[in-house]
Nucleic acid binder design. Sequence first.
DNA 1: TCTGGGGTCCTAGGACCC
DNA 2: TCTGGGGTCCTAGGACCC
Length: 424
Amino acid sequence: MLSAFALIDCNNFYASCERVFDPGLRDRPVVILSNNDGCVIARSSEAKEVGIPMGIPEFKVRPLISRHNIAVRSSNYALYGDMSSRVMETIRSVTPDLEVYSIDEAFAGLHGRSKREIMEMGREIRQRVRRWTGLPVSVGIAPTKTLAKIANEMAKSYKQLNGVLYVRKPDQIGRMLRKTEVGDIWGIGKNYTAMLERQGITNALQLSRMPDSWVRSKLKVTGLRTVKELRGESCLTIEESSDQRKGILSSRSFGRPVKKVDEISEAVATFTARAAEKLRAQDSVASQLTVVLVTDKYRNPGQPYKFGHTISLPSPTASTSMLCSRATDLANTLFDEGKTYKKAWVMLTGLIPESSVQADLFMEERYSERDHNLMKSLDQINAKFGNRTCMPASTGISQNWQMKQQYLSQKYTTSWDQLLEVRL
DNA sequence: TCTGGGGTCCTAGGACCC
DNA sequence: TCTGGGGTCCTAGGACCC
């Protein structure tokens, strides 16, 4: 009986989603832009090949985009989110022991099966997802999650593997680790990579051979876990992902620079309403509220560009109106006439399940049953008739600060008016 | 001109308590 | 010279992930 984890990862997920519904994109390189059409956040393999880097601001690669006739799309999260749940359901039909790790990745536990069965399941996942959703995925399988991540990278890079790689034997793992740069290990980011390289540690095999005490002092407990996992000692398990967030953040960059306090206040109210909706979706109430106003960090490098404040709420709440009024008060206090703002955040923390809130009879502003029912109705109306059908006036009507989405594709799978039509 | 939006976990240090 | 010791809770900040 073997311990085995699979990491299933959709190839170039956002670009692949766009291609499923727009076949004209299949022969062209594709890039997807971040919200507000700011940076490149996803690329088809052809776009990678012609040298479009990840995370680069769009305006810097504009010449490259026109030279290679690259198709550009704004992020369409309605589409990607829906395609993601289809992929996850498909994988679940092969194996129920699944941890959805991100929009395009999932870990599966394949323990207690023979080597042959494990390999079969890997192939079946890949084929089924392709047939049922039209999306290509790669599958990496190994004795630990961290090794499965690396195996997945290999499955993607080497064509002859047909998208599935299962590594098991120590010498095979050793060879794989030698080929893996430290910076490509899951859990080793930019700062640790620089530090490790200064120490002469450049590949994963070298890191796996460092003594525990050294690793613990340099990379802390999380780093030690990573190193043990590289050695084949499983420290991370499949986690039934709970939908219970510990903090909820809502933030957007503005479509243009904003200087008026009214607009800032409108935006902050809008973000607060969205955060409160997410809060209620997980049946929680928040005890703290943070508002941050952000100016242009590139204009005066090194100067402060974030101005925020956190308050404790008089009592934990999930009421949009109560949160909005506090948040706009904060925004008005933080606002500085001379500044130009690019972005704002609203963060809700100190989250607790609504059911465990203590009734406090003397608290005037407590989240009452009446508030609860009002909010439930609000959420139901918006779910039925569309977002922002019913909203506090403080969130504004015109919303001139809204983000840019110049190249947005349709909601092919989640909106009746936008389904594809086929003409025969 | 132009630079995303979410999350998690860990640690250090200060406040406060007995 | 020298000024207890241990615990908890909270916050800020740093590291990481996609």
